[in-house]
């Protein structure tokens, strides 16, 4: 799982108000180089929740991202390289994503986050509805 995916995901347990961001428990992190696509990065920059993204990159052991960012920084190659690296080249291979409110763990195995809920939470959502 790359940090782009992490930045999009949230704990979808009904009743949870703040299911985002999911805390990363990293057991195995891999780096795989990917060709850079500037147009794509610029588009994704508008969609990324920056604070959650910086925190996630730190949980993965990458500390080169600035605390705050704005779109003018996209003109800097240095920034773009770092953004690209953190967004698409860091992979969480094994570990878990933890719901910030309930502490429920969504496991990540072989790079695939399992966002499915166990039964009691599905039922909970039925009752609440």
């Amino acid at each position: 799982m790359r940090l782009l995916t992490h930045n999009m995901l949230s704990s979808n347990i009904k009743g949870v108000v703040n299911g985002f961001p999911l805390r990363i428990e990293a057991e195995k992190v891999a780096e795989k180089s990917v060709e850079m696509n500037r147009e794509f990065l610029k588009k994704m920059f508008q969609k990324v929740h920056w604070k959650a993204f910086v925190d996630a990159s730190r949980a993965m052991g990458y500390t080169e991202l600035p605390e705050k960012a704005d779109s003018s920084m996209l003109n800097s190659d240095e920034f773009l390289n770092r953004f690209h690296h953190a967004l698409l080249e860091l992979h969480l291979e094994e570990g878990a994503l933890v719901c910030p409110e309930t502490g429920r763990r969504f496991p990540v195995n072989k790079g695939i986050p399992n966002m499915l809920l166990p039964q009691e939470e599905v039922l909970l959502s039925i009752i609440i509805c």
Partner: peptide
């Protein structure tokens, strides 16, 4: 071909996306 940027296990009936994310 380049690998998918993300693969996940999720239920389309209960999508796992953060509520503030749209038009992506």
């Amino acid at each position: 071909l380049p690998m998918p940027v993300g693969l996940l296990r999720a239920d389309n009936n209960l999508p796992p996306w953060r509520s503030t994310l749209k038009e992506v």
